[in-house]
Structure formats: structure tokens, C-alpha cells
Nucleic acid binder design. Structure first.
Length: 767
DNA sequence: GAGTTTGAAACT
DNA sequence: CAGTTTCAAACTC
């Protein structure tokens, strides 16, 4: 022992770093021995030696490396396309690896980190029933999962989301702090406090932005605790970098940009967080607690919503299966198809069972937030949806929301849980729309819809609806805007086994409120329902897929974040309206609260949410938005967009600001209905023309299309006339139109398009 | 509430 | 794939 002690002393003297390193292990060994014996432990000398142990420097080094790696890693992450979600899984693995090594250190050394993690873990394990978090995966997942939600929320809510912002800021702050490293004490404090947050933050991508901005992050930390924190931080940060969806990142950035005030807030939040974490009962999941705190801080009326969100978050985290989590992440981050239908009924059943089992265990919080008891597992998804919706609601969807509110279908779907069908997965990229739907659902439904989920079978019977609302009520509610979700079918001949039936189409069982006749869409006939469903799916695999899909381009959204509208959301197949002008619910696009897209074959489209034409152009112009397409569509789309902007200031609202991604997203679907148009596709074939169209095509379009379409335009005589709302619009356009494209003006139009085109591709994260 | 309109779904 | 029919929601009165 004495020899060991001597060695230690020598090492302490600090010869070379090498020495220290070499010695350190020995010392540790010696320590272990001592530990085993326990004899020497008590001796003050030993303790002193231990305290003096050179280990710290080693750690610091290690940490530093990690940081560097992170910094580098961050860069790629920034550029990562949102679509990369698929990769997340792999990333997860990486992250875990990183995290794991750090853990041992934490365990040995610094309680700080451990504390952080432990609470989370413990909380996860203890907490629940529903929230089973497998550590470390579970934690990781949580981090990833939540952030996405949060980010999404942020997007939606920017204004309200102090909490989220604060979170972002937290992450930022922590980073900055780490960078400064001057405030070691703060480090320990913050790091420990934030540990849970870090993951979240990392996901948010704040780190990335932060790191990039500040440059390489160097950690000088002397404190082991700090180091530990860093490691954890780093590990978390790495993930975010990799995993980060651009959306989140952007939002965070925005939030950051929006206010430096965040920093101030951050400090407050941090404190809160600490208290919270400390206060956090074992039940609470680390993150959950964290999230809640901010809400408390906010103290806004939105608390409930936030809570709900939190729950959602937790629920999402709770997923025991990594695969599920992944899905969830995807869902959350990408905003899955708005309407989640129970594509897989069997799964639904399983979920039901789960729910039944778990229902008893629902956390009070959940109850509060939603007012409904949600089952942990099955509900997770549903909760997410809810949360999303809630977020969306908060976010202030803008015009879209209004429109959405009108759409009953969305509501129905929202509540449902569903296992993502493979098809849907394909859609994941396009997920965005979901948010809209969710939003709508939340807005309209307010509290209730959530509950549906609890039932969570593939088919969901909306008990609330069934119990409380008879049709009459329903209609009233609907009128009010709340009850739309409750709508039920009125089928007489289809037996509710065809897509004519809204319930069936939505993957929901018919309920009492339904006035259907000879209804087979009931749990009793589950087999029949499933069989029929399979048949339909065999014909059209996407028959039950969400009709409205969001544009993948987070970028677009980010851009428009101000608008926060579901810009890129579009109807999968597009409408075929001829008389309604896409201004009535006959139009599925309108009903879904989304703008028409290229996929639409509608005539005289006046969709308030976005005309099929304008969408793309909007990307560049953003605000413009759209509304316009009505015109003849094809030809003018480009111009129309501009016109819209000019003419319809209102149109801006609609918001579908952009649709940037639309084309991309839709492609898969669109292929059916319409010729595949890649972002720059030969849209022209349809005549519906995408603005994107390849340059050459665009030119052609202009020429041809305009002429063809001109008539429509011309209907009004003036360019404007063509578009009701827009009519005045086309000032710019009109000339082109009038000129039939021959004039130089037409060329201008082309130029505009072309210009826009380049930007567009660049924007699209994809590929 | 009845009747009409509308467009998706289903069918040919 | 196009055209027609069927269907139920949306709408109007």
C-alpha cells in the first residue's frame, strides 16, 4: 500500500502528462484494492491522495476530444436533410456508444452527471407504466423524441413557446457556458441541471447552430463534474447534430435569433429546471419534469396545453421498443400524415389490450392535460398526436387553422392511434401535414378528441362522441367548431364498409351517433371490417393512408415559420373538383385544409389554402402564398403566385406558404394520379404545370400553357377576372397572359420561374 | 328535414 | 385508362 501511495504521490507531483495517465490507472487499481480491503480508505492520506488524483486531467483531455468530435460532427448535422430521419436509428447507435463510455466515468467520478442521468433513468423506470424507458436507449429516444416535438411546437407556436424557446436557450446557454468554461461552478450546476435537457437541446439542433456559430468548442474544464457533463452533453449533442431535423434546428435558431432575451430566460429556466429536477419525483421522467417546469414558468393559460404536450413527450419517450420510438420520432419530427388511420387493425387490437391494461395506470398529468385517460402504449401515439395538435393549436395555425377547423375529418383522424403502415412510412417524409390535422383536431376538439385515442384500437370508437354527443349535439358542436371531430357517417348502402363511409375510411368504428344503416363497421364485425379493408388496400395500398401529406421540406416550413402554416401539406392524390372551385368541402383539399397541388386536376381552383399553381413559386416568395391557383392554373401559376401576393394580401394567410416541398412529398403519391413530377419534372404533360418544371418545360409551359389556359384566365376578360379573389392579381401576370407568352413579358415570367427554381432545389433538404 | 349538388369511390 | 355509376357528404332551401 505504501508503495502505491508513493506512486500516487509521484504522479501527483505531476511529472508529465504521460506519467499521470500511466499512473492513474494504477492508482485506480490501488484504490480498488483499498476499497476492497477498506482498511486504507479511512486513512486520511488515502483520501487525500484520491482527491489529488491526476485522473482529472485525463478526463479533461478525453472530454476535449469528444468535444472536438462534436464540433466537427455538428457541421454535417446542420446540413443534414430533414429526410434523413431514417438514419436516426443508426445515429442512435452511435450516440449510445458515445454515451456509454462516458457513463462509467460518471459513475465513478462525478456525481453530477450521474445524478442527472440517474434521475431520468430512475424516473423512467419507476415512472411508469406507460413510460418505460430503457436506458440508455430510452433516454436517448426521449431526447430525440421530445425535441422533435418541441421543435415542432416551437415552429407552430413561436410566440407562445417561451418554454420551448427557453429550452433552446438552455441548451445554448449550456453550450456557451461550456465554451467559456470560466464558470466551472456554473458548469457543474448547469450541466447537472441540464443534463436531461441537453439531450433535448441537442436534438433541437441548437447545439449545432450554437457550436457552429461560436466555432470549435473547447473545454478547459477542470471539474470532473463539468467534464462529465460535457461528455453527456457531447454525447447528446452528437445525436442532435446527426439527428437533428432541420426544422427543429431552424426553429431553435429562430427562437434564438428572435430574442437574446432567451439567455436571460434561460438562466431563469435553468433555475427552474434545477428545482424541478430536484423536485421531480421518481415517477417523473427527467425530461418530463423539465418540460413541465417551463410551462410552470410560463404560467400562461397554455399550461394545460403544455402539460398535455409534456405528456405527449413522455408518452413518446415511453415507448419500450426502439423501433417504435423511432417511428414515433419520425412521426413527431416529421409530422406524420395528418390523419392517422388505423391501417393495421391487428396492431390496434394489441394496442387496445395494452391500453386496457395500462389504462388504470394513467398518470394524473395526462388526465389533466387531456382530461382523458390515455393508455400508455397505445396512447403514446395518440398522445403525440394530441400533443401535436395542441401545439399546433397553440402555434396559431393562422388561416389554415380556420380552414382546418372546418374540416371534420381531420378531427376524427386525429384521435386515432395507429401503427404506421409501411406506406405511411414512405409518407413519413411528407409527414408535415399531420400537424395541421392535429392542430385542427386540438383546436376544434379542444379537450375531448384525445380520449378517442385511449381507446386506441385500430378502429377507434369515439366514446366521448358516442356517449355525450348525439348527432344533433354533434351538429351543434360542429357548428361551434368543436365537435366536428365527432362527426359520424350516414351511410345507407355501403354498410360502412367502403371508403364512402367516413368512419371506415378513417379507420374508426361507427358509433351510436352514426345514422348508418346496416352498419358492419363495428367491433362485432371486426373480421369483416378487416377483410374488407384488406381488399380495399389490395386495390389501393394507399387507400387508408393519410390523404393529406405534409411536404417534407422542413426548410420551407422553417422559412415560413412565421406563418407556421402547414405550407407544404397537400392532398395526396389531389382533388378533381370542377364546380366547387375547391372552395367547399366537396373538395378534399379544401376539406383537409390544404392547398391544391399539382396533383390536383381541379378546374377553376380557388382553394383558399393554396391553389395548385402558386404553391411552388411561393417558396421563393414565401409570403405570397398562394391562394391563387385558380386561374387557369397551369399557365399562370407562376405569375399567379406573385399576383396572389399582390392581390391577396389575405391569401398570405392561407398560408400555405409554401408548399415548398410539396412536389417532393407528393411524388410518391402523385405518381398515380398525375405524372410524376419531380421537383422539376415534366409537369407540363398534365398541363397542370408546376412552376418547378424544368426550365425548358417551363418555357414550353408558358407558351403552351398560357395559351391553353389563357382562356380560363381570360374568362374574366381581364387577367384578374379569371381568378375571383385574385382577379386583380395578375397585374404582373396578366401582361404575360395577355401577351400569351409571346411578349418579352413572358420571358420575364420564365426568368422568374427559373430563378425560383434554382432556389427551390437548394432549399429542399432532400437528397 | 327534404331535396339538390358535388366529387370521391367503385365499377365497367 | 377512361367513362359511368354509385354513394354519401356537403350544401341549399
Amino acid at each position: 500500500m505504501e508503495e502505491k501511495a508513493e506512486k500516487v504521490k509521484e504522479t501527483e507531483k505531476g511529472k508529465g502528462v504521460m506519467v499521470v495517465v500511466m499512473d492513474t490507472p494504477e492508482r485506480s487499481k490501488s484504490n480498488q484494492v483499498t476499497t476492497s480491503t477498506n482498511k486504507f480508505e479511512d486513512s486520511p492520506v488515502f483520501n487525500f491522495l484520491n482527491n489529488l488524483s491526476p485522473i482529472e486531467p485525463v478526463k479533461s483531455i478525453h472530454i476535449t476530444q469528444t468535444v472536438n468530435t462534436l464540433s466537427f460532427a455538428s457541421i454535417p448535422s446542420i446540413f443534414t436533410s430533414p429526410h434523413v430521419s431514417s438514419l436516426k436509428g443508426s445515429r442512435f447507435l452511435k450516440r449510445h456508444q458515445l454515451a456509454d463510455p462516458s457513463k462509467p466515468e460518471f459513475a465513478t467520478d462525478g456525481g453530477n452527471t450521474i445524478d442527472k442521468n440517474d434521475p431520468i433513468i430512475d424516473g423512467a423506470n419507476k415512472s411508469d407504466k406507460s413510460h418505460e424507458i430503457l436506458y440508455p436507449e430510452g433516454s436517448v429516444e426521449e431526447a430525440i423524441y421530445k425535441p422533435s416535438y418541441e421543435c415542432s411546437k416551437l415552429e407552430i407556436k413561436l410566440g407562445q413557446s417561451l418554454v420551448y424557446d427557453s429550452r433552446c436557450s438552455h441548451s445554448i446557454l449550456t453550450t456557451s457556458n461550456d465554451l467559456s468554461a470560466k464558470h466551472s461552478a456554473e458548469y457543474a450546476y448547469t450541466s447537472s441541471t441540464f443534463a436531461p435537457f441537453i439531450q433535448e437541446a441537442s436534438q433541437k439542433g441548437l447545439y449545432e447552430s450554437r457550436e457552429n456559430e461560436e466555432g470549435a468548442n473547447q473545454i478547459d474544464q477542470d471539474n470532473e463534474a463539468t467534464g462529465c457533463d460535457w461528455e453527456s452533453f457531447i454525447s447528446s449533442a452528437v445525436d442532435p447534430l446527426i439527428f437533428e431535423s432541420p426544422i427543429n434546428t431552424e426553429f431553435c435558431k429562430k427562437s434564438m435569433q428572435s430574442g437574446e432575451s432567451f439567455y436571460a430566460n434561460v438562466s431563469n429556466n435553468m433555475q427552474n429546471t434545477l428545482s424541478f429536477s430536484e423536485a421531480g419525483s421518481g415517477e417523473q421522467v427527467g425530461e418530463g419534469s423539465a418540460t413541465e417546469n417551463p410551462s410552470s414558468q410560463l404560467g400562461e393559460g397554455s399550461e394545460l396545453k403544455e402539460i398535455a404536450e409534456t405528456h405527449d413527450m413522455v408518452a413518446g419517450c415511453s415507448t419500450s421498443n426502439p423501433s417504435e420510438n423511432m417511428d414515433n420520432e419520425l412521426d413527431s419530427g416529421l409530422y406524420r400524415g395528418v390523419r392517422r388511420r388505423c391501417l393495421v387493425f391487428e396492431t390496434a387490437r394489441a394496442l387496445r389490450k395494452h391500453l386496457d391494461k395500462n389504462s388504470a395506470s394513467d398518470s394524473p398529468l395526462l388526465m389533466q392535460s387531456d382530461g382523458n385517460t390515455s393508455s400508455s402504449d397505445g396512447q403514446r401515439i395518440s398522445t403525440k398526436d394530441r400533443s401535436d395538435s395542441s401545439r399546433c393549436v397553440l402555434a396559431g395555425i393562422g388561416l389554415h387553422l380556420n380552414a382546418l377547423t372546418t374540416t371534420p375529418k381531420g378531427y376524427k383522424f386525429v384521435a386515432k392511434f395507429r401503427t404506421p403502415a409501411p406506406q405511411e412510412e414512405l409518407l413519413n417524409n411528407s409527414l408535415a401535414v399531420t400537424m395541421l390535422d392535429r392542430e385542427v383536431s386540438t383546436v376544434e376538439n379542444g379537450v375531448p378528441p384525445v380520449e378517442d385515442e385511449s381507446q386506441a384500437s385500430g378502429y377507434i370508437v369515439n366514446e366521448e362522441i358516442t356517449q355525450s354527443s348525439p348527432k344533433k349535439k354533434r351538429s351543434k358542436l360542429e357548428l361551434a367548431g368543436e365537435g366536428e371531430a365527432c362527426k359520424r357517417c350516414n351511410c345507407k348502402k355501403s354498410k360502412c364498409l367502403k371508403l364512402y363511409c367516413e368512419c371506415f375510411a378513417a379507420g374508426v368504428y361507427c358509433v351510436e351517433p352514426c345514422s348508418c344503416i346496416d352498419c358492419f363497421n363495428k367491433p362485432v364485425h371486426e373480421d369483416t371490417v378487416l377483410a374488407t379493408r384488406k381488399q380495399i388496400e389490395s386495390r389501393n395500398p394507399l387507400a387508408f393512408a393519410p390523404k393529406v401529406i405534409k411536404g417534407s421540406d422542413s426548410l420551407c416550413e422553417t422559412r415560413s415559420d412565421s406563418s407556421k402554416t402547414p405550407a407544404s401539406a397537400r392532398h395526396k392524390r389531389g382533388c378533381n373538383c370542377k364546380k366547387s372551385g375547391c372552395l367547399k368541402k366537396y373538395c378534399e383539399c379544401y376539406q383537409g385544409g390544404v392547398g391544391c397541388s399539382i396533383n390536383c386536376r381541379c378546374e377553376g381552383c380557388k382553394n383558399v389554402f393554396g391553389r395548385k399553381d402558386g404553391t411552388e413559386v411561393e417558396l421563393e416568395e414565401d409570403e405570397g402564398d398562394i391562394t391563387e391557383k385558380s386561374m387557369g392554373d397551369k399557365s399562370l401559376q407562376k405569375t399567379a403566385i406573385q399576383n396572389n401576393l399582390e392581390q391577396n394580401p389575405d391569401s398570405a394567410l392561407p398560408a400555405t406558404p409554401l408548399q415548398c416541398g410539396r412536389s417532393l412529398v407528393q411524388h410518391p403519391f402523385s405518381s398515380k394520379n398525375k405524372p410524376p413530377r419531380s421537383s422539376f419534372p415534366s409537369i407540363g404533360s398534365f398541363g397542370k404545370i408546376g412552376n418547378f418544371v424544368a426550365q425548358t418545360k417551363s418555357d414550353k409551359h408558358f407558351g403552351n400553357v398560357q395559351e391553353d389556359e389563357m382562356p380560363e384566365f381570360g374568362q374574366g376578360g381581364s387577367p384578374n377576372s379569371g381568378i375571383k379573389s385574385s382577379s386583380p392579381n395578375s397585374k404582373r401576370v396578366s401582361p404575360h397572359q395577355s401577351g400569351l407568352g409571346t411578349s418579352p413579358e413572358v420571358r420575364r415570367g420564365r426568368k422568374l420561374i427559373l430563378q425560383s427554381i434554382p432556389s427551390f432545389p437548394s432549399l429542399t433538404p432532400k437528397h
